[in-house]
């Protein structure tokens, strides 16, 4: 059905069966060979057909940085905007046109430094956007300065003596801002990444996905100690909703709680006493505990930290428009007249 803007709505269409290739553009991809961004692009292109959304209704909006080149390589509508502002443009677009599916592609500098304020507010409002934050813990496009997620003491071009500032934890930022879907994945675990992107895209409300992404030029191996194939099974904690927290090649280790402190218990036979993941728990307490678990003290949690339902900003606005129309049908001339008029003849 055509709307004012000539869009089509999914329900009334015979959906074309799209494949990964339908989402590949003719643009030459200009990331450095070996960059983790390639993997994220590939999994996105693999995942998009599963959404069964006509590609003209998909929009990718990015800011500035290596990751923000992403929209050029996805054969949908795309907007490569300015540094840190992608959430604002996406908010305006989605509020005006709720029927579109809008992705925000950002990085640790774009999303948490220059655009930090917008990131907080887009999550607080619960606008139905899918935000993918490529976290490589470095500024790549400007060639190697530390970022707001770089570890303290890191030596970079702009910190030859080591940084003197503490890093932000993106998952905890998203929790603080009240995002309704929060997940983490890794460029090198393609199956997990595709599934996480899919869940994020399907979520109603704002979705925030942090992807650990290797910058092989300026921060190579930032995540190798726990994300590389050989060590992954022992160093990552794959979160599964409703399942006990277990990790290890044989899922032989578990996580218990000692008061508010998580404890690694090796070689547990029974699930008794293990923490059971609940992404929709009433409070954020468990998600906060998981978000604080980090290498090397703990296995690094990946997967969905939080997945809850909450009223969606643009739906509430649309509902206000509808109910205001019912209650007081628009009459422009009446409005022009205001409360008091007089006639001169």
């Amino acid at each position: 059905m055509a709307t004012t803007n000539g869009t089509t709505t999914n329900d009334e269409l015979e959906l074309p069966v799209l494949t990964r290739k339908d989402f590949v553009t003719d643009q030459e991809v200009r990331w450095c060979p070996g960059c983790g961004d390639y993997a994220i692009l590939a999994q996105m292109q693999r995942m998009l057909p599963r959404l069964r959304i006509p590609k003209e209704n998909l929009v990718f909006i990015s800011g500035i940085g290596c990751s923000s080149r992403f929209p050029y390589y996805v054969e949908t509508y795309g907007f490569h905007s300015i540094h840190g502002r992608a959430p604002t443009i996406a908010s305006g677009l989605k509020t005006a046109r709720p029927e579109l599916s809008v992705f925000v592609i950002t990085g640790d500098g774009d999303g948490l430094s220059i655009g930090g304020n917008h990131m907080l507010h887009v999550m607080r409002r619960n606008i139905d956007l899918t935000i993918i934050l490529f976290n490589n813990r470095i500024y790549g496009l400007t060639k190697g300065q530390f970022s707001p997620t770089s570890e303290m003491g890191k030596v970079t071009k702009s910190s030859p003596y080591g940084t003197t500032e503490r890093p932000l934890n993106p998952i905890r930022v998203a929790l603080a801002a009240g995002a309704t879907f929060i997940a983490r994945s890794i460029d090198r675990d393609t199956a997990h990444l595709e599934e996480t992107l899919y869940k994020a895209a399907k979520h109603k409300g704002v979705s925030f996905v942090e992807v650990y992404q290797n910058c092989n030029i300026f921060n190579d191996g930032a995540f190798a100690a726990f994300a590389d194939k050989g060590v992954r099974q022992d160093k990552l904690l794959y979160l599964e909703d409703g399942a006990p927290l277990r990790f290890g090649a044989e899922r032989q280790h578990g996580i218990t709680l000692d008061g508010f402190e998580p404890r690694v218990v090796e070689d547990v036979s029974s699930d008794d006493g293990l923490v059971v993941h609940d992404a929709a728990s009433r409070t954020q307490n468990l998600a906060n505990i998981l978000a604080e678990m980090d290498y090397p003290d703990y296995p690094v949690p990946v997967g969905v930290f939080r997945d809850i339902e909450a009223p969606i900003f643009e739906d509430l606005i649309a509902a206000q428009v509808e109910s205001a129309r019912q209650k007081s049908p628009p009459n422009f001339q009446d409005l022009l007249n205001g409360s008091e008029t007089w006639e001169v003849s």
Partner: peptide, 29 residues
């Protein structure tokens, strides 16, 4: 003026207000 279909967006800052307007314009509004 919601009854006239007007959507107002009180942004978090001036920059966001500009960005949101650009987004709506990009969307054909």
């Amino acid at each position: 003026l919601r009854n006239f279909g007007v959507k107002t967006f009180q942004a978090e800052d001036e920059i966001a207000a500009m960005g949101a307007a650009i987004g709506a314009s990009y969307g054909g509004h």
